[in-house]
Amino acid sequence: MSGVGSAGSERPAELLLECQGLHVAYGAIQAVRGVSLSVRKGEVVALIGRNGAGKTSLLRAVSGMLRPADGRITLEGKDITGMPSHLLVARGMAHAPEGRGIFPNLTVEENLGLGAWLRTDADGVAADEAWVLSLFPRLKERWAAAAGTLSGGEQQMLAISRALMSRPRLLLLDEPSLGLAPQVIQLIFRILADVNGKGVSILLVEQNAHLALNLAGHAYVLETGEVAMEGAGKALLQSEDVRRAYLGE
């Protein structure tokens, strides 16, 4: 594992999420082998790597969809290893999974509403809904449509909006750019920067290394389940190895 020079780009001090020696396995197949990473408060952290490198499995372990075989995960200092997903939402985590995970049989309105499932402050929910619709006005236009009829880009907007409706402190995003047109991707990444600006920390898994590294304050490169490199996003963008392996240069 090599660290790339992070001259000048200091990471925020406060720890939000930390994984220590995480192992995730599917039966006999080791997807994640001893990964340690952290997300600081206010950061955007990117996880890049090839298909099958273990990025999605890692995210699933963090959000409680999978039980890690070994290792520890802490959120704001508290141990959350193996905690079921629905409890983690109450602790300020939201996960927009791979494939968006929107409910096609429910309307946009209903999907969004479910994002606020645990919240009891009706005013706050209304305010957040307004905010989210200001980020993605397209959703307002498709308000009563069944989410299954939305385009890929619209579904991704819905997935992110829905995740934001729980007012998370940590947003986990799995491959937001997958299958989307370039303009839509640009829009989404711009919005993600805005969202981060509002104080939401983001752990982003992305195949599109260029976009991810541009956005990220800090990044990890995963190869066959292990952290091969880490460093400041901009620094990794400059790195020879990264450019050759992941940026096609």
């Binding site: 997903s85 629905h86 995970g101 209903e110 509403g113 645990l118």
Partner: peptide, 24 residues
């Protein structure tokens, strides 16, 4: 109803429903 919405969500994909805080 809200609960019915949750039922329909769980019916489609209970793992994702849990990601929203729904106690499946």
């Amino acid at each position: 109803t809200r609960f019915g919405r949750a039922m329909r969500a769980v019916s489609h994909d209970h793992r994702t429903a849990a990601l929203l805080g729904i106690h499946t």
